[in-house]
Design a protein around this nucleic acid. Structure first.
Lengths: 228, 228
DNA sequence: CGATAATTTGATTTTTCTCAAGACGCGTGG
DNA sequence: CCACGCGTCTTGAGAAAAATCAAATTATCG
């Protein structure tokens, strides 16, 4: 697993075009690109590991990332996926408590945590943005707990497809970056149950499976009704 | 549900004894008592509701609180329990996204959110503490997701008892403040499964059930091995 | 084209849920 | 003090959901 093909590339601090003040315009999270280095991670590469010091903060440019924890006996829980434009790896303490891995070959901007924390110490608004980001993560986790605690397999898969669909594309069609096993570990199901449930949703005409990865949402009403 | 027997009582800003600087000594969370009003909530009273404006921040003095969300069809997920000494209700945005209810008659300190947020705007360390608190909540949610996504019924109940045991008492014996139904909704199980699992753990000599609520942890090793 | 990984499908088992009933605990009022 | 009622908890039997085991099919890559 996780072959080490991390290729750092130097594309930092490209001069901002005249008169822009990206810090104010987009806040931290719009301007991370300007402060960090672009890195490439190949499929299944580990970006950071459980219990490692949290030295960096990451933003996905392209590709996709999974945040997960592996239990001793091999069971795995994926707590989040991160798609292009999203930020991950922000910790308040100084160690990571989960592992981050590239799901497909991914391009990611990396910023030193110390830089950001120092910024926040001087700038109250920046501090607030960091807090808000952690709060957003928390909210997503709470949503996900609802899913894991209350929903049936069919409801979980439907909720998942709606969620990813919204994040991946404005239209009804999109390509899943992750394998069935990843989906299963995210939804707390087995790969077989995920597969069967997708087939079932297709028979119900709620979705279309152009290929196993390429999905069309045909009937959002049905999918949403499955949700709470 | 949730009878309105909220009894505010005025015990605020009791003069700090000479020379103490509780702000610096305990930080925000040690000194909340000094900034807020004590309130009493009776069993099953709602402390705040889903989608209500988040005007206050709360600290449990005595009793216990559940944070939950109710789905349309009656399914309920409890995302957290709060025991004496613990803080809840802190939101970054200005609405609550869950409901908080007293599990038993509870005494709770209530502080205006605006007070705390204003404090944080002036004091970077305070801001950091708020962030840290949200991060702790996040971490707990992530732990809980692991439980909901990966563990069997027996593992969940064992993990729950260890967790509550640690928070309730230094010894091995403690009284559960919540009913079986609350435990079930927290663990993503049914009340029957929780009950059966407890009986089974007792037969395994992992725990003792002095009464249905009073628990003794007899064999932590067994309980922990059930955990990850 | 062949090898390997990913996905789907089928048959069976296990776990957990559901429905139903009984036991227990506790406060109230006779 | 006891009987009653009510809410909570436990237990049992059967049903349902999802997991497991096994195999077939399909996609991917050199």
């Amino acid at each position: 697993m996780s072959m080490q093909s991390v290729v750092p590339s130097l594309s930092r601090r490209q001069s901002t075009s005249a008169g822009q003040r990206p810090m104010e315009v987009h806040g931290l999270f719009g301007s991370i690109e300007l402060m960090g280095a672009r890195m490439s991670y190949s499929r299944n590469a580990e970006i950071y590991g459980d219990d490692e010091p949290a030295e960096y903060l990451y933003k996905v440019l392209s590709g996709a990332v999974r945040i997960c924890k592996l239990l001793d006996d091999g069971r795995r829980q994926i707590t989040a996926f991160h798609l292009p434009g999203e930020i991950f790896g922000l910790e308040v303490g100084n160690t990571h408590r989960f592992t981050a891995e590239a799901i497909v070959d991914s391009s990611i901007v990396v910023v030193k945590r110390s830089t950001v924390v120092a910024l926040a110490a001087r700038d109250g608004d920046m501090a607030r943005q960091l807090w808000a980001h952690t709060a957003r993560d928390l909210q997503q986790m709470q949503e996900h707990m609802l899913l894991l605690g209350c929903l049936s397999a069919k409801e979980r898969v439907a909720a998942f497809l709606l969620q990813i669909g919204k994040r991946m594309s404005a239209s009804n069609e999109f390509e899943l970056p992750m394998a069935r096993q990843d989906i299963a570990d995210y939804l707390g199901l087995t790969i077989e149950t995920v597969s069967r449930t997708m087939t079932q949703l297709e028979h119900d005409d709620a979705i279309g499976l152009l290929t196993s990865r390429r999905i069309v949402l045909r009937d959002r009403a049905v999918l949403k009704r499955l949700n709470a």
